[in-house]
Structures are given as C-alpha cells and as structure tokens.
C-alpha cells in the first residue's frame, strides 16, 4: 500500500481545488449572464413572462440544490441524454445561481427610488433610456455587495457536486480520507481551503458595502 505524506494529501487537494474554482467561475459567470437576461424579463412589461421567471426563481429557491443536481444528472440520463458529472454540475449550478441573482438584482432595481423614474420620465426619457442612464447605473452600485456576498454561496454550493461524482475539492477529500484513514487531517485541510477561497470574497463584500454606504454614489 502506498504511503501518503502530508504533502501528497495537500497537493492532491490543491489540484482538485482547480476544479472547484473553475466550476465556481462557470456557475457564477454563466448564472450571472442568465440572471441578467432573466432580470430584464422579470422587470419588463410583459406580465406572463414576468410570471414565468418568478415561477422559475421560486422553484429553484424552494428546492435543495442537491435535488437539482440529482435531477440534472440522473433525470437527463433517464431521458436518454448522457451527461457527464461535469456538465450536470455546471448546468445545475448555473440555473441555481441565476435564480438567486435575479432576485438579488430585482431587489436592487426596486431599491432605486420611484422619484428617479418619475424625474427621468418627466424629462421625456423612454423606458429603455430610463433603465440605461438612470436606474441600472444606480442599481448596479447597490448590487455589488450582495452579489459578491452571494459568490461565497456559489463556491460552497460546488461542494455538493461531489455527490454526483464530480471530482472537485470535496470529492477529492473524500477519496483521500478513504485511502489514508486520516479523515481529520484531510477534511481539516479541505475546510481550510474553502475558507481561503471564501474569506476574501466575504471580506470584500463587507468592505464594498461600507464603501457604498459611506460615499454611496460616486
């Protein structure tokens, strides 16, 4: 039987961390793009499209991410579509992230005072012009702290993908723990790596929040 040194464990975990980071980025960027598209529908003028997006967010916020991963992985398999764990994980996480970002961002658009709409309307701006020049720039500023804060949830959410067999940090940790019987060391390191990934994010969210409050506008 091979002997694992501490360094072996650590380097293997770091290698797997690349996948955690990559999956987080894919989920966050993909979810961000999808979320932005859905946001425009959610705050748009067509009521039935708004309802559909609302239903979508309620569905994804109201079910465990784990179930969404199972459905993406096994469900699509049942339909005869062969999905790799990587694809299933990416799809589920993108959909999940988008569902939360839509609601976070909608709240930010709502937080722009009604007077801003009225002032820009009375200057003759159209809905799109109001959005582009007045409302979205302000909503964007409000949205940065909660969005960065949510990215922490995405990073931690990737841990669940280990269950459908995607080898990221948690899955690598499980395998190493089984092989070395040094569960405490391994999971301790895994937790530490997650913390190193997440702490700068939550810290910057906090700093950004303070900054936005102090100089809230420019």
């Amino acid at each position: 039987m091979t002997q694992f040194t501490f360094w072996d464990i650590f380097s293997n975990l770091l290698l797997a961390t690349r996948w955690t980071i990559l999956l987080s980025l894919v989920a966050f960027v993909g979810g961000g793009v999808l979320g932005l598209i859905l946001l425009f529908v959610r705050i748009g003028k067509t009521w039935w499209l708004r309802r559909i997006v609302q239903g979508y967010t309620e569905l994804f916020q109201g079910t465990p991410l784990l179930m969404q991963l199972f459905l993406a992985f096994f469900g699509l398999g049942l339909l005869g579509i062969n999905v790799s764990p990587w694809a299933a994980a990416a799809v589920a996480l993108i959909l999940w992230t988008a569902a939360f970002l839509v609601e976070i961002w909608r709240g930010c658009v709502d937080a722009v005072p009604k007077g801003q709409w009225e002032a820009s309307a009375s200057l003759g701006m159209s809905y799109i012009e109001q959005m582009r020049h007045v409302v979205l720039p302000q909503a964007l500023r409000i949205s940065i702290p909660p969005t960065v804060g949510f990215s922490v949830q995405v990073v931690k959410g990737t841990a669940l993908t280990s269950i459908i067999g995607f080898v990221e940090l948690t899955k690598a940790g499980t395998s190493l723990a089984n092989a070395t019987y040094e569960s405490f060391t391994v999971y301790g390191l895994v937790a530490l790596i997650y913390f190193v990934l997440c702490y700068p994010l939550s810290l910057s969210a906090r700093i950004l929040e303070r900054k936005m409050n102090a100089a809230h506008r420019h």
Binding site: G115, A119, A121, S122, G124, Q138
Partner: peptide
C-alpha cells in the same frame, strides 16, 4: 414623450440623479 417635451416638472424631493 412629445407632451413631456412641452412641459417640465419639478418635484418636492428634487429627484436629481445621484450618480
């Protein structure tokens, strides 16, 4: 839009664009 180009409005709360 055409109507609003003919008549401006000033509000109690100013409603300047803060950004």
């Amino acid at each position: 839009r055409k109507l609003r180009l003919k008549v401006g409005m000033i509000f109690q709360q100013f409603n300047l664009f803060p950004h």
